[in-house]
Amino acid sequence: MKNIQINENGKLKHLLTIEGLTKNIIDEIFVRADSFIDSEKNNVKKVDLLTGKTICNLFFENSTRTRTTFEIAAKKLSADVINLNVNTSSHSKGESILDTINNLIAMHADMFVIRHGQSGAVHFIAENINPKIKIVNAGDGYHAHPTQGLLDAFTIRHYKKKFTNLKVAIVGDIKHSRVARSDINALNILGVPEIRVIAPKTLMPFGVEELGVIPYDNFDDGIKNVDVVMMLRLQQERMENALIPSHEEYFKTFGLTSKRINYADPECIIMHPGPMNRGVEIESTVADSHQAVILPQVSFGIAIRMAVMSMLLED
């Protein structure tokens, strides 16, 4: 696969997907994120790494949560931030993506953080704009959500220290999940020896084994002895498209319950990219249990996004 996010010196030029990143690049991002977490602990609320840089959050798809974490991260780096929800702006008036972007470049943005409903849309933008402009993919279709993949791996690293002895299960709508794809890529690069994906056949993508995972269609079997369980959000429209019969049946067969978590390793951590559907993919008591690291994931997300943005824009 052509890799347009790495420059000729092996450095990160854009962050479009985790696929194709080296372990070294991911480690560098993690070390940087560690330093931002340390600064935060020392009450340093803001660093001036990106003073004078303009970062534009360009969201073709609504997302308050992800956009906010990117915005906080950018502001903590002292960058100027512009937020644009394009689906309510010029795009709906018939302007093409490239015209929208080129207009914004003319306004001197240094980086675009882009979310788009279509897989590959962010690659398309990166390939077609001025190469000096940096692009961070904040989620494209079912393809990738690399900062989420990185922050998930970072969270695992924080709690488990090593990757090379772990069994990780990703549970839910794998088929329509960019988070699952990015998590799988990150964990494979970092050397996790066993990645399981657990879903009914209707939510399991074709040829998923080729991504380097073991598929399970029985949750009780799939969760056995795992060290990490990563739950995915179930979108409402999946039921409308006849992929599952009801939320109730889904919860019964693929929901993470307090009974089911007992099959996992006793030290197992529970993750979720949010927002959660309590009572659909996860039982409330499990989501609030001591094993859940869902809120730390959000905090780590800011440090990871600061690390990525500063790496891309520093020179």
Partner: peptide, 15 residues
Amino acid sequence: NESAIATRLGIRGSN
């Protein structure tokens, strides 16, 4: 085409 590459790229594939 519904295939491993479509899965990898996140493109919705036709069975």
